[in-house]
Amino acid sequence: MSSPARVRIQTDDFDLSTEVAALRAGDGGVGAVTSFVGTVRDRNSGTPGEVSAMELEHYPGMTERAIEAMIDEALRRFDIRDARVIHRVGPLQPGDQIVLVVVSSAHRGSSFQACEFLMDYLKTQAPFWKKETTPEGARWVDARVTDDEALARWGIAAGNSQAAVPGAPV
């Protein structure tokens, strides 16, 4: 069964090197590690510098559980050794690290794929919500259709940005 340490939701920053080392530790079968770091941009669709701050909200309990299930699915789909996900919540600034996905495998192909799969899954299925502060005030960030399309490549219907369409699956 999975260790809860595979998923961490925290306000603190994280260190990529530390997490990669921890994932590889004690597993001589690891020949490849793929990582993804998402960072807070200073803009959304608009002007550079328009976003001065961001606040991340999550659903304690469900968020961890959802990402654990995503890692289980990645382990079923790809020939990988292990994976870790860290997602920050609370107040963040432009330039801050926000999310980390690290995947280990014997050979590079499967960890590249699994890393992208986990991010595509997380973007539309993990309960997090971003609120950004701009000169016009604070606003909740809208979901993107392109994120639904990214997950569809893996044969999974996201139903996230499309949730508003009458009759669409919620």
Binding site: Y59, D142, N160
Partner: peptide, 26 residues
């Protein structure tokens, strides 16, 4: 009960239901 669900799902007694906007993490 902390799993994504669609609106056709029946709600059991004592359930924890949540409503929220589309998610925007990552």
């Amino acid at each position: 009960n902390q799993l994504m669900a669609d609106e056709a799902t029946a709600v059991p007694a004592g359930a924890e239901v949540a409503f929220f906007p589309p998610v925007t993490g990552g």
